[in-house]
Design a protein around this nucleic acid. Structure first.
Length: 587
RNA sequence: CGGGGCGUAGCGUAGUGGCUAGCGCGCCUGCUUUGGGAGCAGGAGAUCGGGAGUUCGAAUCUCCCCGCCCCGACCA
């Protein structure tokens, strides 16, 4: 492959585009790889499309190597299958919907569980046909409320999605592990730094789910990683270690105190230290019990009230809460709803009136750290008063625990007890055991060895193909521009000819031909009018891993090989150049 | 959907009521130049996001609409 800069469809920008913030977006636009067409919708220009196709090729190769078979569905899908699984409604505004001329409903596929399930159902009916794993690489559409960060989160994007079909749980586990292994190999080959984190909330129980995250400041997902063991989890899936219960035989009795003007945890702590000091140490926010009142809406439209108790030094993390309550959707309880619960005294809600068995009848769940024997300052259910020394297990109980408190750096690892660190990452892959949800909804059954109908169990495995292009850019760029790993780069060698000497250009042409003959992909900067500075800047911005300069050194019989990533440059004799370049590119 | 910022040539921008809307990059022509985004000269390119209004006069003021970016909400 030989691309000549003199004719390549490319215009690089000297300045950053004003509407791009994250590095991948900024540089992919500046280097002429992509252009925005609409919010969250992009076109790929030649260089960008080469990188994109390289990523796609690697993804496909890894899937094929694992024995998964490629199929291809339309992006344009009829409504019916999504009606059966209720997703026509459940997907909400994020679904791109349209109608044909006869007013039949269609959608642009956001993901294809239904279609894969139906495809297998249409062809297979015996346990002997299983297991099987199918995949496709397809454009997906999601009408995101707010597309952002360029290619990283678009409304149109390319995803590789695989689905495994097994007769039983053991088979599903095997299929899951195979996908997991192939993803490890795949992301390694893409040159991505990645971590595998637990993605399923403990409270949800059930099936395994893990995300592949590319650590990066621009990432949207927050995860924790243990400082000593290999535990890692999405913040939504962290399991809080439960401390041991504390004996409360000798604990002082609870007592209600006047606490005027203490609307915030901070003011309550200050007031307590002034008027109700404890002997051993000052009160802290973590000694207070904050009870947050919510309304949860279920998919059928019904609602129920819920109170979540968390230590006062933590907020309720709505994302974690939603993950736990899914498909229920929690929102802070509105004033109008609040007044319907006379037992609740705003600002002074305490656990004694909470719980399904209590005066209010409102379900009350607490953070797992709130174990028997812990002592709290909390609302006394009277205006202007709090109760002190309220002991869990003695003075109050909860209906259960909930993983909803915000996670902080330094929280303890559930696996080994060390401190957790927090970081951000881009979700580049997600694998999980779907189970029988779609197989049941769409009635995918096969006959087992006893001639009995059994519902198939499925796994679902996604890779953001277009997103991976941006994720790689995010992890590898520097102040000069893009820096591609060789296998995804648009070329192996960016050969720059400088000066006005015809001999230089003739030599560069020759060398380019030889490199191509040796199997390398070459970009040749053969522009006669552009100054050396322009050519160097462009080569650095474009980010091909090896830059070769044929220029003023030629009269002395040397040319220059630069490593884009390290900036290291070496001069080599013309006679050795071909071999040296080839070996650098094959290293 | 809430908060904030912004819409002037392909890109980046100046211009807060007054002459023909200015500059840089990019683009075209000519000459010069060629190891770090060259120089000189000439040139093309703008319904100033759209509409309505105020005014002798609107890119500039008012109202409505549209769009974009960022934060949040949302996002198996």
């Amino acid at each position: 492959m030989l691309l000549r800069m003199s004719s390549l469809f490319l215009r690089t920008l000297r300045e950053d585009p004003a509407d791009a913030e994250v590095p991948s977006h900024r540089l992919l636009v500046r280097a002429g790889y992509v252009r925005r067409i609409a919010p969250g919708v992009f076109s790929w220009l030649p260089l960008g499309y080469m990188v994109y196709r390289n990523v796609e090729r690697i993804v496909r190769a890894e899937m094929d190597a694992a024995g998964f078979q490629e199929v291809h569905f339309p992006a344009l899908l009829p409504r019916e299958p999504f009606e059966v699984t209720n997703r026509w409604t459940e997907y909400g505004d994020n679904l791109f919907r349209l109608q044909d001329r006869r007013k039949n409903d269609f959608l642009l596929g956001p993901t294809h569980e239904e279609m894969f399930t139906l495809m297998v159902k249409a062809e297979y009916s015996s346990y002997k046909d299983l297991p099987v794993s199918l995949y496709q690489i397809q454009t997906k559409y999601r009408d995101e409320a707010r597309p952002r960060a360029g290619i990283l989160r678009g409304r149109e994007f390319v995803m590789k999605d695989s689905y495994s079909f097994d007769i039983d749980d053991a088979g599903l586990q095997v299929s899951y592990d195979k996908h997991r292994d192939s993803y490890i190999s795949l992301f390694g080959r893409l040159g991505l730094d990645f971590v595998i984190v637990s993605a399923q909330s403990g409270a949800m129980g059930g099936s395994a789910s893990e995300e592949f995250l590319a650590p990066c400041d621009s990432g949207e997902d927050t995860y924790v990683r243990c400082s000593t063991c290999d535990y890692a989890a999405n913040v939504e899936a962290i399991i809080t270690p439960v401390p041991a219960a504390i004996p409360f035989d000798g604990a002082p009795a609870a007592h209600v105190e006047e606490t005027p003007n203490t609307p915030t945890i901070e003011s309550l702590v200050a007031h307590s230290n002034e008027y109700q000091p404890r002997g051993d140490r000052p009160w802290a926010a973590a000694d207070t019990l904050k009870n947050v009142v919510l309304t949860v809406t279920l998919p059928d439209g019904s609602t129920y009230p819920l109170v979540v108790g968390v230590p006062g030094d933590r907020e309720v993390d709505m994302k974690r809460l939603e993950a736990v309550l899914h498909p229920g959707v929690p929102v802070p309880m509105e004033e109008a709803e609040f007044v319907k619960h006379p037992a609740l005294v705003k600002g002074y809600i305490g656990p004694e009136v909470l719980g399904e068995e209590s005066a209010s009848g409102i379900r009350f769940v607490v953070d797992p750290r709130i174990v028997d024997g812990t002592r709290w300052i909390t609302g006394a259910n009277l205006p202007g008063r709090h109760v002190f020394e309220l002991v869990m297990g003695r003075d109050f109980t909860a209906d259960g625990t909930i993983e909803a408190a915000e996670v902080k750096p330094g929280d303890l690892c559930p696996a080994c007890g060390s401190a957790l660190a927090m970081a951000r990452g881009i979700e580049i892959g997600h694998i999980f055991q779907l189970g029988r949800k779609y197989a049941e909804a769409l009635d995918l059954k096969v006959l087992d060895e006893n001639g009995k109908q059994v519902t198939v169990t499925m796994g679902s495995y996604g890779v953001g193909v277009s997103r991976a292009v941006a994720a790689i850019a995010e992890q590898t760029f520097d102040e000069l521009g893009l820096v591609w790993p060789r296998e995804v780069a648009p070329a192996d060698v960016h050969l720059v000819a400088t000066g006005k000497d015809d001999a230089v250009y003739a030599h560069a042409e020759n060398l380019a031909s030889e490199l191509v003959a040796a199997g390398l992909r070459v970009i040749l900067d053969d522009r006669r009018q552009a100054s050396p500075g322009v050519k160097f800047k462009d080569s650095e911005l474009i980010g091909v891993p090896t830059i070769v300069v044929v220029g003023k050194g030629l009269v002395d019989g040397v040319l220059e090989i630069k490593d884009r990533a390290t900036g290291e440059r070496i001069e080599v004799a013309v006679g050795e150049a071909l071999d040296r370049i080839v070996s650098v590119c094959r290293a």
